[in-house]
Computed example of a mutant assay.
Amino acid sequence: MAKREEVTADPPIVVIDLDTRPPPLAAVRHRIAECLACLPSRQLHAVLLIATELMTNAYEHAWFPCQIRLWRFPQANLVRVEVDDVSPYPPVPGRSRLEETRGHGLRLVEHFATSWGMVRRSIGKTVWAHVSLPE
């Protein structure tokens, strides 16, 4: 996990405000897929998996998420996924407080993301991941 990564001032292409109840993940994935339909299939599926895992982790391990955002940076051949939550605790790959057989979501993020990390905020944190696009 990278220590700190800042975002440019470009507006995100997807912003979904989240509340205390998890939204239908299929609907969130569908909205993201519509906005990123021009991506190659492999990268689109990586973005969808990462967005789902980060959002699910926020619901299961933090108190609740606040927002999910995605950016596409064509000049950098990169997609960035961010999920905010109000928990101050950093994500830990391979560990779950819920069940012994759980805790593998961040391992998937590590595998499919070019890089990922966390930025602390005044209340909570933002967990982010990058997916590289072909040139």
Rank of each mutant, 00 (worst) to 15 (best):
D19F: 13
D19R: 11
D19V: 13
R21Q: 14
P22Y: 00
P22C: 15
P22I: 12
P24C: 01
P24F: 03
L25P: 01
A27F: 02
A27V: 05
V28H: 05
R29A: 14
H30T: 13
I32A: 07
I32W: 13
A33H: 00
A33R: 14
E34I: 07
C35P: 00
C35G: 05
L36F: 06
A37H: 14
C38W: 07
C38T: 12
C38M: 02
L39G: 10
P40C: 12
P40K: 14
S41V: 15
S41M: 13
R42D: 02
R42V: 07
R42E: 03
Q43N: 10
L44D: 04
L44Q: 13
H45N: 08
H45G: 04
H45A: 15
A46E: 10
V47T: 01
L48W: 05
E53F: 04
E53K: 12
L54M: 04
L54V: 11
M55H: 02
T56I: 10
T56K: 10
N57P: 02
A58C: 02
Y59Q: 08
H61A: 13
H61F: 15
A62K: 07
F64P: 01
P65F: 04
C66V: 12
C66A: 11
C66N: 10
Q67I: 10
I68H: 06
I68W: 00
R69L: 09
R69V: 04
L70N: 10
R72N: 07
R72L: 09
Q75D: 08
Q75W: 08
N77I: 01
L78S: 01
L78P: 00
L78W: 01
L78E: 02
V79Q: 04
R80W: 07
R80F: 09
V81F: 04
V83M: 04
D84K: 05
D84P: 06
V86R: 15
S87L: 09
P88T: 12
P88A: 15
Y89C: 14
P90A: 15
P91I: 07
G94I: 06
R95S: 07
R97Y: 09
E100N: 01
E100W: 00
G103Q: 03
H104I: 12
H104A: 13
H104L: 15
G105A: 14
L106W: 05
E110H: 11
E110F: 11
H111A: 13
H111E: 02
H111S: 09
H111C: 11
F112P: 00
F112Q: 01
A113F: 07
A113V: 10
T114F: 06
T114Y: 05
T114M: 07
S115C: 08
W116R: 06
